[in-house]
Design a protein around this nucleic acid. Sequence first.
DNA 1: ATAGGGTTAG
Length: 522
Amino acid sequence: MPELRTFAVCRQISTLSTINLNKTINSFIANGNLKEARKLFDQSPHLRNVVSWNSIIAGYFRYSCIQQAEYLFDEMPHRDVVSWNTMLSGYRNANNPEKVYNCFLHMNRYGGRPNELTFAVAISSFLHKDFKHLVPQLHGLVLSLGISLNVFVGSALMRVYIDLNDYKGLARVFDEILVKDVTPWNVLILGYMKFGCTSEAQRAFDMMPMRNTFTWSTLINGYIENNKLNEARSLFDKMSEKDVVSWTAMIRGYVQYGNFMEALKLFKVMLSSGARPNHFTFSTVLDACAGNSAVLVGNQVHACILKSGFPLDVVLLTSLVDMYAKCGDIDIAFCIFESIPERNLVAWNSIIGGYARHGLPERAMQEFERMVKSGIRPDEITFINLVYACGHGGLVEEGERIFNSMVTDYSLKAEMEHYACMVDLYGKAGQLEKAERLIEGMPFKPDVVVWGALLGACGLHSCLELGEIAANGIYTLENDHPAVYSVLSKIYGDKGVCSDITGLEKLMKNWRARKQKAGSWI
DNA sequence: ATAGGGTTAG
């Protein structure tokens, strides 16, 4: 039967060539040469198989040519699970959970049976999205389809349960994973820390069979989140192989607690230890410089960034803008801001905030208008900055106009901070009655900042009656706020009231007594 | 050819 043998040989040859074809396509894609890959693909209709199709589709996704990927997927004569998974993964990486969802539904209806990978991709793409609420159903589907809960599916599920604040779900999935590697353990620690269970996290850390750098930095970061900086630091010191992430996390910890000097010190230690900072580290350190008004160190860090050759992305440039603005050099801040190619909301807020802090409301407003014109929608923080700017410039009517515009033109809700800025604005301008009326009309109970703004204004204008109300307001929230005492004594002195036993004085006496009590406790 | 954890800006 010569024909049959010939056929078999031909088949073999063509299979071999298909393998070669796919290898060549993949190497083109790896080198970023999508056009060549596609050309080869188009020229070999008789050799290509489903793997060739999948490769090209994955390649399109890798270089963000989503439409081309979709087009090719629609043209496919035959799709396998990998084809579907590639689409899901592409949509996931494009941060498009909606398309993941539709594709997943489509697959279950018309395509093949999903596998572990399908679920790992789908579940992880719903993390931190509204779609996360569908994940418990996906979990059920995994179980009912008899798909094994491997480490990938399991870890992704655990992440989402943390996101859903579902402690039980987290623990259940961890138990359901039959063969665990280090990742589910790490996620368990992450979850415990998110739920504030530091001792459980520590226990998991102690009993887990293996650890990696992820484990250590998850624990360190968890302690920082849970106000246990000392524990974080002693763990960090115990770490034998510190990597960029753990260094950055620890530095960030100090910044978070306002200990900027220690943050900068640690950064120096990091550099001398030979560890290489990345853009995460640089943003964090710039934040420390900004908090410390350390423009000289900030300059050095700036130079260090330029020398390091790291690409200056929006985040890093915004950190620089913020650092220079907070260190008093608003002109350099503006120059850097202007150099940002694609300014986003945070970048705009940062420069507007800079002008606000420098008491230049006109400049702040100019940038705001430029921002709106460029198509960026302002958010709550934009308006905090703008009202704050007006407060520093004494522009009462302008501040009112902006405050109202926020609600009517941009349908944003006025939050506590906006009210605090408005109270400050009225207070600085001496319009204390307006400030008082605003507080009364607030849809929520004033916090320390609002009362503080009022109290500060009362101190400025020596208004005893209102100052008393403000002090009382603070007192009910925080009975050992040092500012209360100093501002009240100032008003008191200004008023020349010395011997009258007023409610105010009682309050102060009371407050001092309480404070001493608290002191003797230690 | 497709998969899971830790660090960044207002």
